[in-house]
Amino acid sequence: MILLLAIVVGSLYAGGLYMIMRRVLIKLIIGLALLAHASNLLIFTASGLIRGRAALVPAGGSLDFRQVADPLPQALALTAIVIGFGVLAFALALVQRTYQVVGSDDLDQIRSTDT
């Protein structure tokens, strides 16, 4: 399965990177979103895959740490997902604002910081 997920992560990165190299602002945003997915999945996959068992300790019992998914990368990815949302929103606001000021969504027209 890791082979398949490696393909997914690789494709997400390839797609995201390709998109952020386009000229149009909105493609930049979609590229960023793809890259966010890619990074989350990379952290998740790299920590080892265990099917179906979450790190939830049963009431009154104990849990064998070898049998469940590693909780630490999950905690990392969880905040990363939410922060990724915040960053995407910020990028969107920036794009919108840029378009209003510069009057173009062409990145090649936005070469200078003085508008």
Partner: peptide, 16 residues
């Protein structure tokens, strides 16, 4: 915080 942030973002960008 998360609720406030998400709402602030939605409202701000939505109003545009």
């Amino acid at each position: 915080v998360v609720m406030g942030a998400a709402l602030l973002i939605m409202f701000t960008l939505g109003e545009e």
